[in-house]
């Protein structure tokens, strides 16, 4: 009885570990990259709405806005303003992974999201 239980446990462990190694995708061969996004804010909407980068990428976001906006990137705590006369750009390293909302403090609207995926 004990042998059978131990045998079952060992088989289960082997299958679990094996399955994990088989299913797990290879981590990206490429290292961190430079990513630049041109974003426009029009009528309370950000186009493109979702910005996807990889962990460690150097990210630059250039914003052009039809009306004055004060943007706040949650999580990173980066704030910058943009307006009709001049666009604005920020640059930062994507050190934190996850999903970070971009909000316009003037209107209180959620405009978009920055998605930083793990390597």
């Amino acid at each position: 009885m004990v042998v059978r239980s131990l045998g079952a446990l060992v088989v289960a462990l082997v299958v679990l570990v094996g399955l994990f190694l088989v299913l797990r995708p290879e981590s990206h061969a490429a290292g961190p990259r430079e990513r630049t996004f041109k974003v426009s804010v029009e009528d309370g909407e950000m186009v493109p709405r979702e910005l996807r980068v990889g962990e460690g990428d150097r990210v630059t976001v250039r914003v052009e806005a039809g009306e004055p906006v004060e943007l706040h990137l949650h999580g990173y705590g980066i704030e910058w303003g943009a307006g009709p006369e001049e666009g604005a750009a920020v640059s930062f390293g994507a050190g934190l992974t996850g999903r970070f909302g971009i909000e316009d403090h003037r209107s209180g609207e959620d405009l978009g999201v920055l998605v930083v995926g793990p390597r």
Partner: peptide
């Protein structure tokens, strides 16, 4: 952003 989620959805392979 109270209650805002910072997690990403599970990738398909991990779900399976």
């Amino acid at each position: 952003g109270f209650g805002q989620g910072y997690d990403l959805p599970l990738p398909l392979w991990l779900y399976l």
